[in-house]
């Protein structure tokens, strides 16, 4: 079971002066249980790409296949709602979609659209709020009196309450402070641990490096690079060219290497990098010791 894009192209406003390819011949597989990162410059087509996964946008050409069903095909028409339940998308700045009087009711909006029983809905709301570590006190509050970060959590809870199999996040950490950002990413990593398939869009190579198992890099609507973060970040020159660069810690290792230190440059986890630097340091010490003798 997987999400599959087959030769998907998308043109916005076909036939007008502004016509342009937002996506060009994209082939991509998202396997169940994985954590896929999507990186790319502003305007490279990331948001366009993810909106194809639940049929919000229709490809100009190509096919989108969710768990074996072509979602723009005839047989999928009636089931679009069910499909949308499977693939939960959290948009860029999701806090702007809140509208209900209370937090509880806003989170319940998705489940209510699925025609679930009241008990089940309540159960799901509680579950989703627990997952995002939102306190019980918040249930009866108006979503509009919360902080930006809290609003975003509510919006994500609203998507999780639909129990999607695939969770797709568009720039989930944009505009959050460093602490909120950290908390958020940990939370998403947690959800992934619990078995959710996660696709995360981000400009931040640091974020993708830390959490994604596999990543793709988009440029002008085409996939330029694909593979494990390690493999992708090894191509630092190409990434620089695209204008994305590599994670901060990888950059540090590259700088060290330029200055003559013997270090690997395909690492990005803080623990790995610090160990690598310590290793290089002790090696140099040893060599100094040997020279002195």
């Amino acid at each position: 079971m997987s999400l599959e894009l087959k030769h998907v192209s998308h043109i916005y406003q076909e036939g007008s002066a502004k016509e342009s390819y937002a996506l060009r011949d994209i082939c991509l597989n998202v396997n169940e249980g994985e954590f896929l990162g999507i990186a790319g410059h502003t305007g490279s087509g990331k948001s366009t790409l993810i909106q194809h996964f639940n049929g919000l946008l229709k490809p100009t050409s190509g096919e989108v296949i969710v768990d074996g069903v072509n979602i723009n095909g005839k047989e999928a028409k009636k089931e679009l709602k069910v499909l949308r339940m499977q693939v939960g998308i959290v948009f860029q700045y999701p806090e702007y979609q809140l509208f209900e009087e209370t937090v509880e009711r806003d989170i319940a909006f998705g489940p209510r659209n699925l025609n679930l029983s009241d008990i089940e809905i309540q159960h799901r709301v509680t579950e989703a709020m627990d997952m995002l570590k939102l306190s019980k006190k918040m249930r009866k509050k108006s979503p509009f009196e919360l902080s930006g970060g809290q609003k975003r959590k509510i919006a994500i809870a609203g998507v999780l309450a639909m129990k999607p199999k695939y969770l797709i996040l568009d720039e989930p950490t944009a505009g959050l402070d460093p602490k909120g950002r950290e908390e958020f990413l940990e939370l998403i990593a947690d959800l992934h641990q619990q078995g959710l398939t996660v696709v995360m869009v981000s400009h931040s190579m640091d974020d993708i490096a830390r959490y994604a198992q596999r990543m793709i890099v988009l440029e002008h609507g085409e996939i330029r690079l694909e593979g494990t973060p390690q493999a992708v970040f090894a191509q630092s020159e190409l990434l620089d060219q695209i204008g994305l660069g590599v994670p901060t810690l990888t950059r540090l290792l590259i700088e060290l290497q330029k200055q003559g230190w013997d270090v690997r440059t395909d690492l990005f986890h803080p623990t790995d990098v610090s160990q690598e630097i310590l290793r290089a340091l002790s090696k140099r010490e040893q060599r100094k010791g040997a020279d002195l003798c």
Binding site: F91, F109, G158, V159, M162
Partner: peptide, 13 residues
């Protein structure tokens, strides 16, 4: 358009 999509993603029609 954006809000419609976001609500549609939550099952609104």
């Amino acid at each position: 358009d954006k809000i419609m999509k976001a609500q549609a993603a939550r099952g609104a029609s």
